[in-house]
Design a protein around this nucleic acid. Structure first.
Length: 104
DNA sequence: AACCTGACTTCGG
DNA sequence: TCCGAAGCCAGGT
């Protein structure tokens, strides 16, 4: 079910602390969804959810802001992450390995 | 039911 | 190390 998967993804993303990041594949493992599906869910978030869920803390496996493909949203994500103290050059988070949020 | 698509990953050269 | 191709599969049409 779509909304069911969506809620599972939201629950995980909500757990990411400020200044930390998670990858699509990490979230995929925790929710049992394919990483691409996680991305699909995040692209189709309603504006009401965008305010409540720290969607900007989700990046790809290489610490790259892949939402740049969507246009403006990518720039917004970059700005939000910078506000949380991350250094980013050309949508690539510097030293991204240090910022993974691990859930065991 | 079949086919298409994508905020992804992995692998081979 | 860097790129492109191949694999992936849930959702939408």
């Amino acid at each position: 079910m779509t909304s069911n998967s969506r809620q599972r993804v939201y629950e995980i993303v909500k757990l990411i602390p400020k200044g930390k990041i998670m990858s699509f594949s990490q979230i995929g493992r925790l929710t049992g969804l394919h990483p691409r599906t996680v991305g699909n869910i995040l692209t189709t978030m309603q504006s009401e959810d965008l305010e409540k869920i720290p969607w900007h803390r989700v990046v790809n496996n290489k610490g790259y802001i892949s939402s740049i493909k969507l246009g403006l949203k990518g720039k917004i994500q970059e700005n939000l992450l910078r506000k949380e103290g991350l250094k980013i050059i050309d949508y690539q988070i510097i030293d991204y390995e240090k910022y993974w949020h691990q859930i065991d």
